[in-house]
Amino acid sequence: MKASGIWILAEQKGGKIADVSFELLTRGIKLSEERGCELAAVILGKDLSDADLQELIDRGADRVICIEAEQLDHFLVEPYSNCLLELLGEERPEVLIAAATSTGRTLMPYLAIQANAGLTADCTELSIEKDTGNLLQTRPAIGGNIMATIKTPEHRPQMATVRPRSAPPATRHKGRSGPIERFKPSEGSLGSRVKRLSFLPDADEKPLGDAGVVVAVGKGIKKAENIAIVKELADALGGALGATREVVDRGWLSYPHQIGLSGQTISPKLYVGVGVSGTIQHLAGMQTSEVIVAINNDPEAQIFKIADFGVVGNLFDVVPAMVEKLKAGRGMV
């Protein structure tokens, strides 16, 4: 079977390309170099501007395929899956990778079944096997206790979702050029039995999954009112506020803040645990963070075992002191 390269599935929100797409390009550039083939970025939406699509080229795509229709403005699983399936059938790419976002993690398994393709979820490493050209997909499993490397020897495309923030965004190189192909899908592909009635955006809170810095608060905070001091630290660091299961269970913060087995898995550049003891369930959701620091008054707390830097002390003293220091030092660092 002749295959035509590596595809990444870019995402857009309200016509703007989502940052996670550029992380996928970083993955895609590496794979297309290893495989010696073309890298294409596929995107679905409506009214995407040439300038925006050119950014995908600037950041490393050799080619952009834009599938456009009114019905593709927001993610809906059936039209998204149908449109891609149509395209996959025509173009037969070797590899299709998407982000492990709420969109990617819904669309890809739906599509993989239709395409009779293998799919690996939430990968943290991707490479090409030298002799066979197969995609090697490595992902954490069992709460991060093991890493598994998976391949799909006989089915094409080889599909994978990639954990957001597990690679840096590809850098922009002005002057790159490549075709931007716009497709109008067939009416038959656009039908959806699901209707999107409305959307309620989060008022002012930063989404956890996209955040480069996450400050997580644990049971050590003692009560809901105290969370304000951790929020201040998150603000001072320009990060999002996360929480352990315990804190969410007690109703001190809402579920979208929860990190861990029954919450979100994050890989920020910096994770700060405040009064977090580090249960295995929590660690499963954050141990791939790049830099981990922790503040806890118990020197035996598990979190210190996986942290890079720890302050053993009372969080009610340490956190305000840190906020003050960060505010004072802003612009100096």
């Binding site: 996986i306 830097f309 720890g310």
Partner: peptide, 20 residues
């Protein structure tokens, strides 16, 4: 379609510096 080719323990290369 998928095959597990290798399972291994993640490297935990972190060493925690502690400040009291």
């Amino acid at each position: 379609p998928t095959r597990v080719v290798k399972i291994y323990r993640p490297k935990v290369a972190r060493k925690c510096t502690i400040a009291e």
